[in-house]
Structures are given as C-alpha cells and as structure tokens.
Simulated assay, not measured.
Amino acid sequence: MRIAVDAMGGDYAPEEIVKGVLKAAAASPEVDLKLVGQKTRIQPFLPNSLPSNLSLVEASEIVEMDEHPANAVRKKKDSSIVVATRLVRQGEADAVVSAGSTGAQMAAALLGLGRIKGIERPAIATVLPTAGGGKLILDVGANLDASPEQLCQYGLMGSVYAEKILGIPKPKVGLLNIGSEEGKGNDLTQKAYDLLKKAPLNFLGNVEGRDVPYGRADVVVCEGFVGNVLLKTAEGLAGVLFEQIKEKITSTAVRKLGALAVKPGLKEIAQMMDYAEYGGAPLLGVNGISIICHGSSKNKAIFNAIRVARECVQIRLIEQIQGNLP
C-alpha cells in the first residue's frame, strides 16, 4: 500500500506533518509513505537515515490558504497537493492525505481524479466528536448549495463510510433540519426527506442542531453552507467551554484543590472531543482516496489520518460506494 502525504499543507507544515509521517512509518512498516513537498524544507526534520518505507517526492510549489483554490491548482502544476493527487491518478499511490487548503484539495481531486460514476457532486465528510462518539457530518463545505438528489447521495456515501470505517453497524442517517417532525423545513429539506426515506438506508428522519452533539444520528446530512457553520460553531463552542472550565476551577486556592480531583475526568472528556483522534475524513464521491485533515493538524492527527487512508484503501471504499448507489 502506498500513501502520498502533502508535507507542505497545514498551519504546522512541514514539521508536524513530517513527525506524523515518521510515526506512521514506524507503526506500519508494510505501508509505503511518500512525503511530497520542497525537499530543502522537509529534510531538516528527518533523521539522517530514512525508514525503508519512506521516500521524498519533490514538489516545488505551495498552494497558500489565501489563494483561489481552483485557479491555484490550475496554475501551480508542481504544488504539493497537485503532485500528491497526481501520484494517485497515475497509480503510484493509493491515497493522498493533506492538511492544506480544503478548496485546493477538492479542486485537485476533481480535476485529477474525477467523480465516481453516478455521483453528481462530492461531499466533504468530517468526523465530529459527540457524547456518543465520533459521528459523520456531510457536507461541510464542498458545495454551499445542494439539490435533494445530492443530499440523498451524501446519505448513501456517508452510511457506507460510517459502517465500514467508523465501525457503526446499520448507521442511523439523519437530515439536519429546523424541526424533527416530517414536513418541517424548506423546499430542499422536504424533498430530500422523501428521497432519503425511500433510499436503502437506516433513515432516522430529521434531526435538529441540538441533537448533533448528543450523537443522535450517526450520519448527519446537510448542504455545505449549513454544515460548515455547524462544524465551526461546534469547534468554537467546545474551545470556549474548556477555556471557561479551566479558568473557573483554578480561580481560587480551594478550587485548585478540587480541580485535582476532577482532572482525570476532564482529561477523558478532552480526549473524547479531540478531532486529532479521528485524524481526517475523505472527500466522498471522487474517484480516489483523498483524506482531508484539519488545517491545524499536528503529528497525532496526521498519524491518524494516514490510518484512515489505509483503512479506506483496505476496504476498497470507492467500490463500496459504487456498489451502494441505486
């Protein structure tokens, strides 16, 4: 198995990316890892002797976060994300992993790999930590708008991923809406509800935003605009809550003593809510494995993203999705 990793993408690239890849190389000697990027910037973080299953692939350009994704991908043919995706297209890698510009990764995948036959638009899936474990949200930004048919396809693809990768048997699929009753919502969600109800899915029905953190649905379906707002709001709220808890329980000497007693429990909660535990999630619907990581991913997240890529290849995710399309 061969996995290409974009060494130049992400807030902490290339150092944290390289660290994560080195961990993965040690943990999975059977996987051939390819670090793609500017060798002169990568090499200072590598050991004198490379692991036998790690190689460098030169890519002279970088797609910056403030660049227009599609334009940058078209102009920068030698950028790390384009070169890494090209390795997959040419059969030199089985998957690509990146924490760089999500828009650029999507553009590179669409232009370089194309869509799975029958899929109208790909969707960015992300695993959201909840009280019930990691749950899948899609779409979270690939397409700001979607048709009812596309939302139904998101549900089908998400259900396959949740079952095969997250290990959830018969995953419950929910449609994000403003009410739980059938008939709620706008024209889009009402039509999507009817399609999802008829699809070969374990369709739960509508779920509200407050249901998501409790993990009521294993797969939450929505258009990219709503999904991205949901994701960013959840991230911000979690950050604020942990900051406030830390501040309040250490504000006095007495509270600091009490904090020692609850510290183990807080650590467990923090670990459960840590996106790095899930690493990354695929761009579902493209004809190849392309794993998208959080922009602020550090080595732990990259290590786990490589694990996810490996699992997607092992279960033949593309074929699994094709086999579940009506």
Rank of each mutant, 00 (worst) to 15 (best):
I3D: 03
V5I: 15
D6Y: 10
A7V: 12
M8P: 03
E16H: 12
E16L: 05
K19F: 15
K19H: 14
K19M: 09
G20W: 09
L22Q: 05
A27Y: 10
P29V: 13
E30C: 04
V31K: 06
K34W: 07
V36I: 10
V36G: 01
T40Y: 13
L46Y: 06
P47A: 06
N48A: 14
S49V: 15
L54K: 09
L56N: 05
V57I: 15
I62K: 00
D66P: 00
E67P: 06
H68P: 01
H68F: 08
H68A: 14
A72R: 01
V73K: 08
K76H: 04
S79P: 07
I81C: 03
V82L: 08
V83R: 03
A84D: 02
A95E: 02
A95M: 02
A95T: 12
V96K: 05
V96P: 03
A99Y: 08
A99N: 08
G100P: 02
G103P: 03
Q105D: 01
A107E: 02
A107D: 06
A108I: 06
L110E: 09
L113N: 07
E120C: 02
P122M: 12
P122G: 12
A123T: 06
I124Q: 00
T126H: 05
T126R: 09
P129G: 07
K135Q: 04
L138P: 01
V140N: 01
L144M: 13
D145E: 14
D145V: 08
E149Y: 05
Q150W: 00
Q153E: 14
G155H: 12
S159I: 07
V160N: 03
A162F: 03
K164A: 13
I165M: 04
L166P: 01
G167D: 00
P169Y: 09
P171D: 11
L176P: 02
N177M: 08
G179L: 01
S180T: 15
S180W: 01
E182P: 04
G185W: 12
G185L: 11
N186F: 10
N186Q: 12
L188H: 06
K191G: 04
D194A: 15
L196D: 11
K197A: 15
K198G: 04
A199L: 04
N202F: 10
F203D: 02
L204Q: 14
G209E: 01
D211R: 06
P213G: 10
Y214K: 15
G215S: 11
R216F: 14
V220F: 11
E235N: 11
G239H: 02
L241M: 14
T250N: 14
A259Y: 09
A261W: 06
K263A: 14
K267H: 08
I269Q: 00
M272G: 05
D274E: 07
G280A: 13
P282Y: 11
L284E: 01
L284A: 14
N287Q: 04
I291R: 04
I292M: 11
H294R: 13
S296I: 03
S297R: 12
K298P: 00
K298Y: 09
I302E: 02
F303E: 03
R307G: 15
E311L: 13
V313W: 04
I315V: 15
L317M: 09
Q320W: 03
L325D: 04
